[in-house]
Design a protein around this nucleic acid. Structure first.
Lengths: 237, 237
DNA sequence: CCAAAAATAGAGCGATCGCTCTATTTTTGA
DNA sequence: TCAAAAATAGAGCGATCGCTCTATTTTTGG
């Protein structure tokens, strides 16, 4: 179930959820222009920062006039809001719905969460870059959105680890910080994107490395082979 | 050898290295006012972002007039530059000088690097928050500084891991990404500071958790007890 | 003690910001 | 086909930005 993550599909979702803000009636026009606008906004923001991106920049880059822009949002902050909520929605949609056979096994589930999260950020790279990089300077309400979204993600990891604990699968003495330490490992993939790209590291390699590190920290070694299609078969002791 | 990391000591270092920029002659006055200015700049920047901090904000908060500010820097960017280079200097000074008995043993050395890095970011929290959060929106030259500084830190980890490999201490099949994955774990301590503080997690607990995760990933299990004064004696298999 | 030097205050400058508003063009539908 | 409606362009508004410059106060040292 690979959800389409191109800019246009995501903008379609934005139009659905923010119908009261976009004042353009013709849906064909609205989708096409919003896509252009969001595309330009992500590019500019991720290059120079959201604050430093002026609406005149955005107008020139997107080819939509100043007045035209305000048919798609009612303030610069509401543009930010659109992008941010779309990212949040995508994360929730993907991580909340594991296949049944995955949900049944905490080990597979944890591995699956790691893989899906990295693949999602890979597919929506500019969106995540935007949401993470800019969150610190958001206005109060939007910053809260970003924080909450992140807390929600962490909950998925906490829950599956708690379930593993109930089933007695965890290593003895495993740190209670484990769930909190997963997120920064996942985020590094898009935050330090350039570094990994420069070294020619494939997304599957990255996923496998994080999976191995976390699985080692969480579980007793066992004869079972690692799960997840990205796994590269690290040698187990 | 605990280097003093209070704002005043760091500002003294700034005055030494940026003597050509600060135009105030009296060193007592210069130190006192620069400390006040940097203090205010870090507070404002970390609250609302460097770009959003206007020099009028800074003037009002620090109590130094607009004209007065420009006796301490010649542009907003050069103020940024001061703080950034001081952070870089501090990292280098601490991480480059391990005690002899630590440098001799890759395991101890890796553990030591983790501990020292977290303790340093703890002691210079607003500085690191500033350097990391704002780096993305820096002008070209300053962004390069931040990137280089980060690459340098990573080198310390790469080197000690390479040394461990030479001595045959590493687990078989350990990921070549290991060194790259340490930094995001260390950064989370100050990037997500509020989260850890809210949950009442002590710095020693955090250090121990990261040490354990990394040591487990890197090394074969052994009977030796974990090193570093922050270690809390996790049960080893 | 008082001129020279250093330090300080804050009004003012040009540029640019987010945003609005009207004039104009394009599209729609009876 | 042609008036009504929708979409678009971009000049203009007040606020604020980084920064400068002069007038003034404070400190220094012979």
């Amino acid at each position: 179930m690979q959800k389409p993550c191109d800019t246009e599909a995501l903008c379609r979702s934005i139009l659905e959820h923010q119908a009261d803000i976009v004042s353009i009636r013709n849906p064909r026009i609205a989708l096409k222009k919003l896509t252009v606008i969001i595309d330009a906004a992500l590019t500019l923001s991720n290059t120079k920062g959201f604050q430093a991106m002026s609406l005149r920049d955005l107008s020139k880059t997107s080819g939509v006039s100043m007045g035209g822009l305000y048919a798609y949002f009612d303030s610069k902050t509401s543009l930010l809001n659109m992008i941010l909520s779309e990212v949040t929605r995508a994360v929730e949609e993907v991580l909340a719905n594991p296949p049944q056979e995955v949900a049944d096994d905490p080990r597979r589930h944890l591995s699956w969460l790691i893989e899906e999260h990295v693949l999602l950020t890979e597919a929506m790279l500019p969106w995540f870059t935007f949401a993470f990089m800019e969150a610190k300077n958001f206005p109060r309400h939007e910053r809260r959105m970003a924080t909450d979204s992140e807390a929600l993600t962490e909950r998925y990891f906490e829950d599956v680890i708690a379930r593993a604990a109930e089933q007695g699968l965890l290593r003895p003495g495993v740190t209670p910080l484990l769930a909190m330490l997963i997120k920064p490992l996942l985020q590094d993939w898009y935050v330090k994107r350039a570094k990994y790209h420069r070294r020619g590291i494939a997304v599957e390699t990255y996923i496998a490395a994080v999976q191995n590190m976390i699985m080692d920290a969480a579980f007793e070694p066992s004869g079972h082979s690692r799960l997840g299609k990205a796994d590269q078969g690290r040698i187990l002791p």
